[in-house]
């Protein structure tokens, strides 16, 4: 039984924590932008991809210069620089595309359409510059696999995960803690929460709303680059890396309640778990119990076939939108 439980842990728990961290970190950005600026920022996925590509270029640069830290992937070392660059670009995108529309008092729908335009521009540029093929951070380095033996009798399997997955979880914890301290302790963070609650009231109370908007883009851009780079370290780097998961990220933000960073984090992990659990073959866990079960355990019991993994997030998204559009943690409404 222990072997099967470890198999479950490796295939569901590790996978869902890794995926959930990406959803959580990216979902926080989406939810913050919605809370402050009141529109669904569709280009968030492509900001993630852009961050990952910047990290890829920087990693290549570091490799040519011969700079590296033994034991850590170079892609991870350069991540902070990529985060800074993406934050600057996010700020620039706002200045170029969204700020003029906000000035015109355009509706949230217009901003949503503009963000689709930005999606296309960013994705087109990435494809134009990097081509449409896939790349890997681990062409010259090796991805370390961590195996932890379980000191129990009769256990042959080990708990397995990769080093990028471990770093991903650690970085998510750091990012969430820093964000929490920022939102609850700093003056600016409190101003941000006030503006998310009621923008007009915040403005008349003397909060510098322009500064809050700027900081929002910087935080969202940095978090997007972090999520994108970590995702590219875990899987492969492609021009549609994050465009494909932008809906699960929106699902995380909506399920958590738009405008609620903590909700987005919880919902991110929830959706990551639902996706991994839905395609897991539960027969593996039931087979050792065959002796006490009244029926024959089939070869495979999955909630959905493997091809429908992402569909799980879409179904959750649609169901939550219909059943409780404000999210399970009561979100903002515009």
């Amino acid at each position: 039984m222990m072997n099967e439980l470890i198999f479950f842990f490796n295939n569901v728990v590790v996978a869902s924590i890794a995926l959930g961290s990406i959803y959580a970190v990216a979902g926080v950005g989406v939810t913050l932008i919605f809370g402050i600026l009141r529109f669904a920022h569709f280009a968030h996925g492509d900001m993630m991809t852009m961050g990952a590509f910047l990290a890829f270029v920087l990693a290549g640069l570091f490799a040519t210069l011969g700079w590296s830290v033994p034991g850590l992937p170079t892609g991870f070392i350069v991540m902070p620089i990529a985060m800074v660059l993406t934050a600057i670009i996010a700020f620039g995108l706002d200045k170029a595309f969204y700020a003029p529309l906000r000035k015109r008092k355009a509706s949230s729908v217009t901003l949503l359409i503009a963000s689709i335009g930005v999606t296309l521009i960013v994705q087109g540029l990435i494809r134009l510059i990097f081509g449409s093929g896939a790349a890997s951070f681990f062409e010259t380095e090796t991805k370390q696999l961590i195996r932890i033996p379980v000191p129990l009798e009769g256990v042959t399997r080990t708990i397995n995960f990769t080093q990028p997955q471990l770093l991903m979880v650690l970085m998510t914890i750091v990012a969430v803690t820093v964000l929490h301290l920022f939102l609850t302790r700093s003056r600016l963070g409190k101003a941000m929460r006030a503006m998310a609650d009621n923008a007009d009231l915040a403005q008349v109370s003397g909060i510098n709303t322009k500064l809050v908007v700027r900081v929002t883009w910087i935080i969202a851009g940095a978090l997007a680059a972090m999520a994108g780079t970590m995702l590219a370290l875990d899987v492969q780097l492609k021009p549609d890396l994050a465009f494909n998961i932008v809906l699960p990220i929106f699902a995380a933000a909506i399920v958590g309640g738009l405008g609620q960073p903590y909700g987005a984090i919880a919902a991110g992990y929830l959706i990551g778990f639902a996706e991994s659990a839905a395609i897991f073959n539960w027969s593996v866990l039931l087979r050792p119990l065959q002796g006490i079960l009244p029926f024959e355990v089939p070869v495979s019991i999955t909630f959905v076939p493997t091809e429908y993994k992402l569909t799980v997030a879409f179904v959750i998204l649609v169901v939550v939108l219909l059943w409780r559009p404000t999210g399970i943690f009561k979100g903002a409404s515009s």
């Binding site: 669904a40 909506i254 879409f314």
Partner: peptide, 22 residues
């Protein structure tokens, strides 16, 4: 879906279209 607010409607319809594609 039509009872949803516009931006939620947009996201819900993208979700449904992705389900059909899958």
């Amino acid at each position: 879906c039509l009872g949803l607010r516009t931006d939620y409607l947009a996201i819900a319809t993208i979700g449904i279209s992705e389900i059909i594609r899958a």
